[in-house]
Structure formats: C-alpha cells, structure tokens
Design a protein around this nucleic acid. Structure first.
Lengths: 345, 345
DNA sequence: AACAGTACTGGTAACGTTTTCAGTAGACCA
DNA sequence: TGGTCTACTGAAAACGTTACCAGTACTGTT
C-alpha cells in the first residue's frame, strides 16, 4: 500500500501527472513553483513525484527553456595548483548565482582548446571562462567568435577578439618589484625563464623586467632570457643551459611553479646552492617554495580572488551587461631566503 | 552570391534543410553519416551548413538519442596534483572512445558530493567516475543508488553499494613496505598521520602499518595514530601534538602530499631536522618531496594509470558489461634521504 | 440576475533533434 | 512490359520539457 510504485528507471513528468491525476502542465508548474498553484495541487504532485521516483530531465528542460544555467571553464593546466584555486573561487560565486560549472582541461594543448570551445558551444552553455593555451591561434579565435554567449578570459588577451571581459594579474608590477629587488642586491646577470611569448603573463612580466633595468639605465641581459613553456622539463633544460654559459647568471627568476621544479632540479644537478651560489625568485606561491631550504622568494597573487572576479564578470554579462570589463588583481613580492646580496669577488 | 547567408546566431537543421532545398531528415542523415545518402546530397547539405553557419544542438540530439556520450567525474579535491593526473588518464581514454568528460569537484565536502551526483544524474550523463568524500554518508549512497548508469569508484568502497566497478591502490602493501623499512632501521615509535577513517586508503594503510608491526610481534603504537583529514592544517596540528608528547615519535608517516606540507611546517617550527632528528615518509610523490632537503622518501603510485583504469572499467560497463570489476594499481616505495637509522642513545 | 474578476487547471504547440515508415525513381532481369 | 530490387529521399512521430491560451468554477459587485 505504502509502496504502490517502486522507483523505476526514467519516470517522466507524464507519469507523475497520470499518477497524480492532473495535467502535465500542472506538474511543471509545481516544479517551477509558479505562483498560481493551490496547496492541494502541490501536495498531490509532490506525493506522486515521490511515488514514481521522478527525476527532472535537464536536457529537455534546457532545450525548451533555451538556457542551460551552466557555464564552461576551460583550464589550460589542471595540474597546476594555482588553477585549482581559480576554479574554486569561480565555482563558489557561480553557485551562489544558481549556475553550475562544467570544467574541462586543455592540457596546455591549443588544439584541445578549440575542440573544447566547440563542444561546449554545442552543449549550449550560457557562458565561458577560459585561459587559452595560445593567444594567437586562428582556430581558437574562430571558435570563440562563433560563440554568441559571454566570455571571460583569465590572464589572456586574444588578438582580434575584444568582446570578452577579462581578469588580469598585475604581472608587470610584480616582476618589476622582483627585478628591482635583485638589482638592489647588486645582481646584474639576472636570467628570466618563462613560458611562450604568445601568452600575456609572459609578455607582461618581460615588460616589468625590462622596466626595472631601464629605470636604472642598465642594459637588459638579452642573452639570459629564456621563453619556452610553463613546464618542469623546460625549466630544467633552460637552467642547465644558463649555468653552462661563460658568463652565467647570478640570479634566476622562474615564471611559474612548474618551471620552478625544473629549475631546482637543474641547480641541484649543477651543484649550485640556492641563495648562496645563485639567487632565485619564482612566480606564484606553492608549498615547494615555502618549504624549500632555503625558502624561495616569490611573486604571489590571490588565485581564489581571480576566480571570483572572473565569475563576477561573467555573471554581469549574463545579467545583460553588454559592455565587457576588465578586472586586475595585484601581486605581492614575498621575500624569503633565496635572494642574497651579490658578493663581489 | 558566395555569401548568400551571413552566419547568424542559432541556425537550426530546419534552416539548413530549407536552404539546401531538401528534407530535414536528409540533413540529419548527412550529419550522422548514414550509409544511404548520395554524394550529391552530401555536398548540397554541407554547403548549406557552411552557408547558414549551422551548429548542432547537443541538447536536442541527446534528448532524442537518449544518450549524452558524456561521463561525469567528481573529484574530491582538485587542488591535489594527484587528481590532475588521474583526470588526465581518464580523459585520454574516454576521448578515444568518443566520450567527453565533465569534471566537478566536491572540495572534500560530502554534501557537495550529493549535490553533484544529483545534478549529473539530471543532466543524464551516461556514466560516472568518482571518489566520494565520505564512504558512509547515507545521502551519498542514496543518490548513487538512484543512478541507473554505470559507476566507477576511485579508491573508495561505498557501503551497501556494490554495483560499481572500482580501481583500488595497493595502499596496504605500500604502507607495509614503508613501515617495515622504518622498523628495520630500528624505529619503534612510528607515528601515522592520515585522513578520515571513513576512507578506504586510510583504512588500508592502517592495515599495512599494523601488519608490519605484527609480523615482528611488536606492539602497534596506538598513541601515535592520528586520523583527521587530508589537509595541510591537520598535518601541522597533528605533528605539533606528536612532537609535544613525553615520548615523541622517532619517525612519522604522512598519508598524503597536502598533509606533508603541514607536517613539514610543524617540524620546521619545532626545529626538528628531517632525517637527522626524525625520519619521514610520505604518500604520493610530488616535487616538494623530491626537492626537499633532504629529499623525502615516498610511497608512490601511477596516478595516470589509475585514471586510465577507471575509464577502461567504465567503458566496459558502458559497452554492456554487467559485471562490476575491480582493478588494483601497485605502489612502490621510493627511498630517499629522509629516513635514517635510529641512533640509540 | 448578470457580469467582471480571481484563482486555478487542462490542452497543446513549441524547442531541435533522430528514427521509423513509406514512398519514388531508376536499373536490371526475364 | 511488367516486375522485383536497389538506392535514395520525405513526412511525421517521438524524446521530456515549458509556456501560452483557453477554459471552469467560484466570489463578489452592481
């Protein structure tokens, strides 16, 4: 008696209506709590729902409504703990606004960026947050342009695509502070190891780096600049190369936490003691930097805040804001034991 | 002439059909490359698609087909680099099989687990891979049971839910090896810091730990066991407590990389030198362990392989395999400088 | 007593696909 | 010439919702 109907796979609104002896549309109204429905009807329908084990079909609902209440997030590298924090911040804010997030990672592969944008577009997401792997790739730009929904870029400027909001980090400011600190310690041979130049953070950091030298009317050590990818192997290889130079650097700036592990491996292999033999600053704080011996100075930023800012910008656009906007999050130089005054021989 | 129609927002198959002067069904056949369609028809339709800028609507398609070709992945903690690798492995394999993955994180919050399972179910995913935050939570079990689609658990055993496949890590074997190593170095006061006991890895590791003592007919140091959560703050707090004991441990085993950073912070604060004053082994290899001074011994495993295994098991079920299966991945003890022979006073 | 208004409820047409079922036209064979 | 076969195409019915448009039955007003 109590268990008239056993919950079975795939009960639909129609069956709920039949079981409750009401019209399909009434069930829909109850579910979307439409104002014009009687208490009796509500109870009746809710009972029927429980009885048949009904589960709404979001595909059908989205199709009909024309909106999925879902935003996509394409992370360029999910293994970077930094991104986890950005995602966290974004998801939190989106959740509050009743949106859910589908996350995908492009593994730093520009081709996957394209595929993912297309896929999400076809899934009819309402908006997109992403950090493309290559700002200049025509395919990516094309896919993005086909997207009618609002877009927020994270630390990226996509050439010829200016309808998106963006959240930027003040990389140039942070890098400038880091470089000035090293210069003030007497370092001149400062190396910069970073990712591909087609990425905004890399360009901005370079700007800050150069600015620090130029302010002091010093020559930028062009032979010590290494642009490749934000990966440990590149960091290791670049560092090894730098150490092998006739006039090697006395300080290294690493452009990210993945690079950092490569840099440290190479320094270790080259028997260089951090701080003592060579000064080191990295970007983005991670446990590895904090707990290294000696602790490594970093240019830090609040990644959770970045995620929140990205979500807020997107929500603004989703709410009908037609004017794309830009938010900037500050950086902060955390000095630790890895930078030491240059001993003049 | 060439640009008869400018690509506009939301062209539908109907418009493609109209533009090509063919039936709706023919367009569909072309898109799903049905065998019975002439070359002429294909060309005609493809031209029309390009002309009107048609983009398939996956919502409609999935609704009609009754399958989304999508599997959900609920990660319990996305900020753990380990998970990134699991996701990578899983996504790779699923991709090959034509499935796409939607990723969500529960932030280690059991409540979110529930919400996410429900959401994904309503989105009509075809399958689910997950690592629940709490194996015993009734709500989670209920939500999982309502799911008619195949499920693969990662390193979890959900009580009363036995229709899922699972991929397990040989945690007990790894922990046993680690414990035996420490015992053979003369350590007896060995502490174990780990997550909540409601998680399989924690229970299995404890088993391995106890087995090592029992093999040697030694008493398990119950007062040195600390179960809390897989987080840095807990690791730090537990370690601080242990160091303050009258008879403190001479060795610590940390149950994860997040815990490890907490443990190291506490050791540093307590002025204990790793290796020299206290031996240390952690679980799962991360750059922090490798590049620490001294390098930290770890019980490692291949996370990418875990992801691949999970995806393979799911695909098997999706292909109609009705019998849930279990895969186990091995662990491996990597000895480094953080474990030293106990100096007897 | 007729009317307008209120508070609901039911039927039905969408949303954009896929799939089934009939058809048509030509080719081939006898 | 008629017939069966093959190769293709079109019409229309789903899939599970939501939203619109009419109802219906009260209640209150004049």
């Amino acid at each position: 008696m109590e268990h008239e109907y056993v919950a079975m796979k795939g009960a639909t609104m129609k069956e709920v209506a039949a079981h409750a002896g009401v019209a399909l549309s009434s069930v829909s109204r109850v579910l979307n709590n439409h104002p014009d429905v009687s208490e009796a009807m509500k109870r009746q329908v809710h009972d029927a729902i429980a009885a048949v084990g009904y589960e709404p079909n979001l595909l059908a609902s989205s199709l009909r409504r024309g909106s999925t209440k879902t935003v996509g997030f394409i992370a360029s590298d999910i293994s970077n703990p930094l991104f986890a924090e950005i995602v966290l911040g974004a998801e939190r804010r989106l959740d509050e606004a009743g949106y859910s997030m589908v996350l995908t990672n492009s593994e730093g592969n520009p081709e996957r960026d394209e595929t993912m944008i297309r896929l999400l577009r076809r899934r009819r997401i309402d908006g997109l947050i992403l950090s493309v792997a290559d700002e200049d790739r025509p395919g990516t730009i094309a896919e993005l342009s086909k997207l009618a929904e609002p877009v927020v870029l994270i630390d990226r400027e996509v050439s010829g695509f200016h309808t998106a909001s963006a959240v930027f980090t003040d990389h140039s400011g942070g890098m400038r502070a880091a470089s000035e600190h090293l210069l003030s310690l007497g370092h001149r041979r400062i190396a910069l190891i970073s990712g591909a130049r087609s990425l905004r953070p890399v360009r901005e950091r370079l700007k800050g780096f150069e600015a620090a030298f130029q302010t002091r009317s010093l020559q930028v050590p062009e032979d010590l600049l290494r642009f490749g990818s934000f990966s440990a192997p590149f960091g290791q290889q670049a560092t090894a190369e730098l150490l092998a130079l006739d006039d090697p650097p006395t300080a290294i700036i690493s452009g990210g936490n993945l690079l950092l592990t490569g840099v440290l491996r190479a320094l270790q292999a080259g028997q260089r003691s951090v701080g003592r033999d060579i000064s080191l600053i990295s970007c983005d704080d991670v446990p590895l930097a904090e707990l290294h011996t000696p602790p490594i100075s970093v240019v830090d930023r609040d990644a959770v805040q970045m995620g929140e800012a990205a979500a807020s910008l997107l929500l603004e656009l989703l709410a009908g804001g037609d004017r794309p906007r830009v938010a900037e999050v500050p950086t902060q130089l955390l000095l630790r034991g890895s930078t030491q005054s240059l001993v003049v021989d």
